[in-house]
Design a protein around this nucleic acid. Structure first.
Lengths: 106, 106
DNA sequence: CGGTATCCTGGCTGATACTG
DNA sequence: CAGTATCAGCCAGGATACCG
């Protein structure tokens, strides 16, 4: 139960790192939507992101254990990104935030 | 209802600005905890923030309409910050995120 | 296709000192 | 008390080109 005035003393140490990454939450959400998604699909989906930034952010999210990367030795090469369990949890946690953001933009 | 694989197409335009600010969510949360809070209390609560950064972030949050600033013509001067309705909504929206963060840090 | 490599830049962020 | 002024640094983020 969460009352409006409840005192919340959570620490965000180490999480601001994830949250503050400009594209991180977007990526989490998009990957969650697709379940499996490839690099260039992400590039299209996240309009305006540069390959470097996307690559960097994906690596960071991998290190955080939020995203899984699976590459296939094919030609042409194929790489698929999926959410880990932690990533799925995070995605659930940001849904209210996304909803708030959407209400706000309209 | 939110199923795990539901497709969520929210746009975060303009919200990443708020979210990515390093201290923004912390401030929203702390102000929400206190209901009314003064500058120096925030300084203590947000360990490591500089007055400039705090001041800048507060201004930004005011411009976004998330925080209200009320100053009293007293000596010594007194200024109180409170959440606007939008701010309260945002605070509610980030609670799951804070919980997730807390679980994660332990 | 799925990235690196390289370079660049703006603004976030902080330290410190000072003021109305 | 509640900030501003000033200075400075770093690095996230972007543009572009290229590679395995």
């Amino acid at each position: 139960m969460h009352e409006e005035n409840e005192n919340i003393c959570y620490s965000l140490e180490g999480v601001t790192d994830v949250i503050c990454k400009k594209w991180a939450l977007l990526i989490i959400n998009v990957v969650g939507n697709y379940r499996k998604v490839r690099f260039n699909t992400l590039m299209e989906e996240l309009q305006g992101v540069s390959p470097k930034t996307l690559s960097d952010t994906l690596k960071k999210l991998q290190n955080e254990g939020l995203i899984r990367r699976e590459s296939f030795a094919e030609i042409p090469p194929r790489v698929e990104y999926t959410l880990t369990e932690d990533g799925i949890e995070l995605r659930k946690a940001i849904i209210p935030l996304l909803e708030w953001a959407t209400r706000r933009n309209n």
